[in-house]
Amino acid sequence: MKSLTTTFVLLLVSIQLFAQPQESAVVDTLAGSEKIYVVAACALLILLALLFLLFSVDRRVKKLEKKSEGK
């Protein structure tokens, strides 16, 4: 009985080994490789924002083109 209790307690203790905080794959990648992917993510974000801006200006110019065609 005693050995069974000991086994059970030791099993309980070992459970916390599995309870390590599990980060997502994305977070792990960004934190790895000396954090170079953090820089890549920031550069990508800037690129996306500029492309978004490009699309919005494009839309406004298209509207102007339509307006001038109607005249």
Binding site: S33, E34, K35, I36, V38, V39, A40, C42, A43
Partner: peptide, 18 residues
């Protein structure tokens, strides 16, 4: 920004390129 060499600093590592 990605290719040049940077000083090796703790914690920052390559993210100093930001």
């Amino acid at each position: 920004g990605f290719l040049s060499s940077v000083p090796a600093l703790p914690i920052l590592h390559e993210s100093i390129r930001n």
